[in-house]
């Protein structure tokens, strides 16, 4: 059972199919097989968080999952955050508050923040920092990112 197998899953709301070796990492499947290159590879051992996506609504490292494990799951990548050409409030806030420079960690930051704010819609700054410590950024000193999440939180609350 080491040979490739077919998997079906939903990615950014659309049904997708893949033919993958069991050892293929979910992040490689998303990038190479589905062509969704917005999800980035940064460390492949679960520390940097650049590859974070939502699996069934929850943030998970896609370098620490096999593609076959996502069979039947709903996966949301950064490409699925904006709807009908309108940026997600977190994307807007990152833009407004200079929450990114090179943009490489940004997808992981956005999706981690997205999941976090669902659990904790009115976080303190310390709680935001704690949640974001799941993703490493080397450009921003995190200042703009923290401000962006603070700014997005009430907008997401209001949108509920």
């Amino acid at each position: 059972m080491a040979g490739p197998r077919t998997i079906h899953l939903t990615v950014n709301g659309a049904p997708r199919e893949g033919w993958v070796e069991p050892r293929k990492l979910l992040v490689d499947f998303i990038r190479e097989d589905l062509g969704l290159t917005g999800t980035h590879v940064g460390c492949e051992h679960g520390i940097c968080g650049a590859c974070t996506v939502l699996v069934n609504g929850e943030a998970a490292r896609s370098c620490l999952m096999l593609a076959v494990q996502a069979a039947g799951a709903e996966v949301l990548t950064v490409e699925g955050l904006a709807r009908d050409g309108t940026l997600h409030p977190l994307q807007e806030a990152f833009w407004e508050h200079h929450g990114l420079q090179c943009g490489f960690c940004t997808p992981g930051m956005l999706l981690t923040a997205c999941d976090f704010l669902k659990d904790n819609p009115s976080p303190t700054e310390a709680e935001i920092r704690e949640a974001l410590s799941a993703v490493l950024c080397r450009c921003t000193g995190y200042q703009g990112i923290i401000k962006a999440v603070q700014a997005a939180a009430p907008k997401l609350r209001d949108a509920r």
């Binding site: 059972m1 050892r23 990492l25 051992h45 679960g46 370098c63 620490l64 999952m65 096999l66 076959v68």
Partner: peptide, 22 residues
């Protein structure tokens, strides 16, 4: 998989098979 997968990615663990209990 949060401990096992890094070991697999580093090839520090090379099991013949994975039994995925998820």
């Amino acid at each position: 998989g949060q401990s096992l997968m890094p070991l697999l990615n580093f090839r520090l663990s090379r099991p013949a098979a994975l039994v995925d209990i998820n």
